[in-house]
Design a protein around this nucleic acid. Structure first.
Lengths: 129, 129
DNA sequence: GTGGACCTTCCAGTGCAGGGGAAGGTCAAG
DNA sequence: CTTGACCTTCCCCTGCACTGGAAGGTCCAC
């Protein structure tokens, strides 16, 4: 299968697949005599895995770690669990920060409900911020 | 006041202040005969404003818009209000996305609580993801 | 034999907010 | 008179996940 067909099947682009290969997420593809990349259909499952990892908020580098473990013959279960734990903690923190930011902005916005240009002094730039 | 002193007073670096000038957040500084930047003390207030804008999650480009309006002689109140509204909507959306992602990952993590390497088939890479 | 769709490599850029460091000028203290 | 701290401009680098485009090779149908 050529790169364009694989890309379409996997819902991505040829460009991205070359990038994945360069990043070590896909093994160097077999080549036809004319140097076209030639993929086995199973490769699509690997790309799907990459997409699932992305959907879980993992970076390509983290997904690559999992694939490397698997390619090394081991089961990546525990590493996956640790990554999920770390990701979960990060997300909780991001949510907390965003929530605090939302409250801050909501308050600023409340103060700015009735804009009163005359009460803004020039050295403040804007009294609502 | 020279750039290093202003930077320290404003809690930032000289490098960043040059960058702000380049981005139009600070007007081109006065220069001494030896071409050193020479700032009025009030400049610190403008840098503080930039920092408050950042704390509200605004980008430098948005903060610049506000400063440009103010520098043009008008009161930026309404624009600020609109920016805050837009930022608020963005944040709500980010929180919603992160919350959904958190739930997804929490579920995956739950399934991976007792890793069982033997039940992972190679073509799946990892049955928990 | 030609057109167009596909493929190849390589280089460069995107957005965001700066940071690193080179090569050289300036200033005050000792 | 020299040392060291500060300043100047300049260009490149960071992280992340791609994307765009140029220049050229290949394949297949008409």
């Amino acid at each position: 299968m050529r790169i364009g067909e694989l890309a379409e099947r996997a819902g991505t682009t040829a460009k991205t697949l070359r990038f994945y290969e360069e990043q070590g997420l896909l093994p160097p593809a077999e080549r036809t005599p004319s140097r076209y990349r030639d993929y086995a259909p199973e490769t699509a499952a690997r790309i799907d895995f990459v997409h699932r990892g992305q959907a879980a908020g993992l970076t390509l580098a983290q997904i690559r770690q999992i694939l490397d473990i698997r390619d090394g013959g081991a089961a990546p279960c525990e590493h996956v669990r640790d990554l999920l734990d770390a990701r979960l903690a990060e997300i909780e923190q991001q949510i907390a920060q965003l929530t605090a930011l939302r409250d801050t902005i909501a308050e600023l916005r409340h103060d700015a409900a009735q804009p009163d240009p005359d009460s803004c002094s020039a050295d403040q730039v804007c009294r609502y911020l």
